Computed example of a mutant assay.
Amino acid sequence: MKRNTKRQRSDDNFLHAMEGKVITVYRGGPESKTGRLADIQSDYIALQVDNKIVYYQWKHVKSVTENTSETVSPAEAAECEKADDFQDLISRMTNRTVQLNQGGPESKRGKLHETGDDFLVLETEDDGIVYFNADHVKSISAEQEEDGQEEERPEFEMADDFHGIFKRLIHKWVSINRGGPEAVEGILVDNSDGHYTLVKDKEVLRIYPFHIKSISEGAKGAAKKEENKDEENKGEKESAEEEKPHEESREEQRTSSKKSKRSSRSVRSSKREKEVSYSYATVLRTIDYRWKHGRK
């Protein structure tokens, strides 16, 4: 939705007067940041916070305060992304790790894989693939690009717009929003007039995609639980493999001990046989000697 032309002109004059100066965006809350106003575009502003650029969607900004006592040297200025609008800006960050919103329940960090006309696809650690309604994104910042081996691209749904994503998730268990009182889970069912129904147990909710901030397939936090489960299985497997040589060593020791005992018994048995044989020979000679002695 485009802003009123007169208001836009007023906002532009107001902001351009502070360009390059130190300001505070929002007076409080998780989105509040203080930095240098680095750039002003049609529907977003760029705030340099230390060496990072945070891009705010202007329609969500509730207040901007100029800090007249603070200054930032022009030599410390960081380079900003240039885009036609906020949605175009997001698309330019594709395949990079981004921070979506600076705080709050809808704040997520992850790899940006794709964008549509009014949504973006973010791979997160906790929830896996999450589809965010770009209209509700308050701010975004990108991390420095790192040269490295490309990771395997995960599977996800794609559509022209956010409504299309909902259509592709029909009859699946989904999580609506990341947190707060509006976060719900259930089976998504199609309805008329662009509305959808979410069914969970005996509760039935009617929802409209425009008001939804984010949606993901599966239970919230399922990706993290699955990762922890895989790590546990991997740890048990490694532990078993490490224990195997010890078991084999102990088995060899038991086998060697048994052989040693058998060898010892065999030696003792051999000694007894020699002793018995020697005793028997002595007896025969003794009897024979006495017999001959008797005949004389």
Rank of each mutant, 00 (worst) to 15 (best):
S277Y: 11
S270G: 14
H211S: 13
E238R: 13
D230C: 05
E275S: 07
S264W: 01
E248K: 12
K244C: 01
G218V: 03
S256K: 05
E232Q: 15
S269P: 03
S260N: 09
Q253L: 07
R250H: 02
G218I: 08
E217K: 14
K234L: 15
K237A: 10
S269Y: 10
R268P: 01
Q253K: 13
K225P: 02
E236N: 04
D230A: 11
S263R: 02
R262I: 08
S214Q: 00
S277R: 13
S257Y: 01
E273R: 10
K271A: 09
K229A: 15
E226P: 06
V276D: 12
N228P: 06
E241N: 06
V267Q: 10
I215T: 00
E226D: 10
R254C: 05
Y278Q: 09
R262M: 02
E242A: 11
P245C: 01
K220R: 15
K224S: 11
N228R: 14
K274G: 15
E236L: 09
H211A: 06
R265T: 07
A223V: 04
P245A: 01
T255C: 01
H211P: 04
G221I: 12
A219S: 13
K258Y: 09
S239A: 15
S263A: 12
D230M: 12
S269K: 13
K213Q: 10
S269L: 14
E217D: 03
I212Q: 00
E236R: 10
E273L: 13
S249F: 08
E227G: 08
K234G: 03
K224R: 15
E236T: 04
N228V: 12
E226W: 00
E236F: 11
E227C: 07
K259F: 01
E241A: 12
S266H: 04
S249E: 10
E273H: 14
K244D: 05
D230R: 14
T255Y: 00
K220I: 08
R272V: 06
R268C: 01
E252C: 03
R272Q: 05
S214F: 04
E217W: 02
A240W: 02
R262C: 00
H211D: 14
E273S: 13
K244E: 10
E273P: 02
I212A: 00
N228S: 15
E248P: 03
S260D: 13
A223E: 06
K229G: 03
K274Q: 14
T255D: 09
